[in-house]
């Protein structure tokens, strides 16, 4: 049986994303169990090769890079063809992707091309003899399924943040490769990537998320949430569906069953009652703080620390205290 593990390292706009290191870290742990190597694949526009060496820091033994102008934006068909071709050629035990927005699109395409099922959005992964076993939250996170894959290779996507990128430095062999077919001939074309506010930390990358709900009473009070996030310094701002439906915040900020699913180190729920749809998006956060005026609010059942009170008074006081604790 093949011992090597293939990791897909995601990039956007010519830079590797944090999830690229998570994929390599997860692959490294699997390869340490099989005694095999980690091979990473990267695709991007001209210049991406210079970024590939960083994957060695997280345990990649080899990195295959394809540079092509048609990889400047996400190119689903050409990228899936390339990853599947590498996966076929190398005889890999496991192909690891991360279930980011791009990974959710790419991973099932790769599985389909390889003729195997996809174990998607796993929160843990391990080898069990010739099988791959992972856990996957189902039924909006209310049930945890342990999934066994007997397909070869096993194609998996891991939930962003489920694995913390960890350095295991080695000098990766960097190889360049040609795309599989002509990437410019893809039927599905990304015509435009609309950048959000790039100064803003993304919800998937932020170690701290401060999230606001209807308890803030008015759109303009959301600045209290932003100020608290700014005080932490490494925080992103999220919102409940009620708030995004009302247009207080963009739809892309929504955390919950139908929005983003996040697992930051710290999740601060401000004026959020804790409807199950919201809990489905954040209950795996490591530490949860809730501030709400209703002591019976369901959010207090999942919160490690709760304060009962008016968010309009408590949040500015917390912002000041966090600033003091951070020394600014």
């Amino acid at each position: 049986m093949a011992n090597n593990i293939l990791a897909f390292a995601e990039s956007r706009g010519g830079d590797l994303r944090k999830v690229a290191y998570e994929a390599v870290t997860a692959a490294r742990a699997l390869a340490d169990a099989t005694g095999g190597e980690v091979h990473a694949v990267v695709a991007g526009p001209s210049g991406i090769t210079a970024k590939a060496g960083a994957l060695g820091t997280y345990g990649a033994d080899a990195v295959t890079v394809v540079e092509h102008p048609a990889f400047a934006d996400y190119n689903p068909e050409a990228l899936a063809a390339f990853v599947a071709e590498r996966a076929k050629g190398g005889g890999y035990r496991v192909v690891v992707l991360i279930a980011s927005a791009q990974g959710k699109d790419l991973a099932p395409r790769v599985a389909g091309k390889l003729g195997v099922p996809l174990a998607s959005d796993l929160t843990t992964i391990r080898l069990d003899g010739d099988k791959v076993v992972g856990t996957h939250p189902v039924n909006t996170g209310k049930v945890i399924a342990t999934v066994t894959l007997t397909a070869n290779p096993a194609v998996v996507s891991l939930r962003p943040g489920a694995v913390t990128a960890a350095e295991k430095p080695r000098t990766a062999r960097i190889e360049t490769a040609a795309p599989a077919g002509d990437p410019a001939a893809s039927r599905v074309k990304v015509t435009q990537t609309i950048a959000g506010n790039t100064a803003k930390l993304d919800l998937g990358d932020a170690p701290v998320i401060v999230s606001g709900g209807r308890g803030l009473k008015a759109a303009e009070n959301f600045k209290l949430v932003e100020e608290l996030a700014a005080a932490f310094g490494n925080a992103a701002v999220g919102a409940t569906r009620a708030v995004t439906d009302d247009g207080w915040r963009p739809h892309s900020d929504q955390i919950g069953q139908t929005g983003r699913q996040v697992s930051p180190n710290l999740y601060v729920a401000v004026g959020i009652s804790g409807a199950i749809q919201h809990l489905a998006g954040m209950r795996t956060s490591k530490t949860i703080v809730a501030i709400n005026k209703d002591p019976e609010a369901p959010i207090f059942k999942v919160a490690d620390y709760g304060i009962v009170g008016d968010v309009l008074e408590v949040v500015p006081a917390l912002t000041a205290a966090v600033k003091a604790a951070k020394g600014h």
Partner: peptide, 9 residues
């Protein structure tokens, strides 16, 4: 919808 961005196809 992407993380902090969107793409048109």
């Amino acid at each position: 919808e992407l993380e902090g961005a969107a793409e048109l196809l």
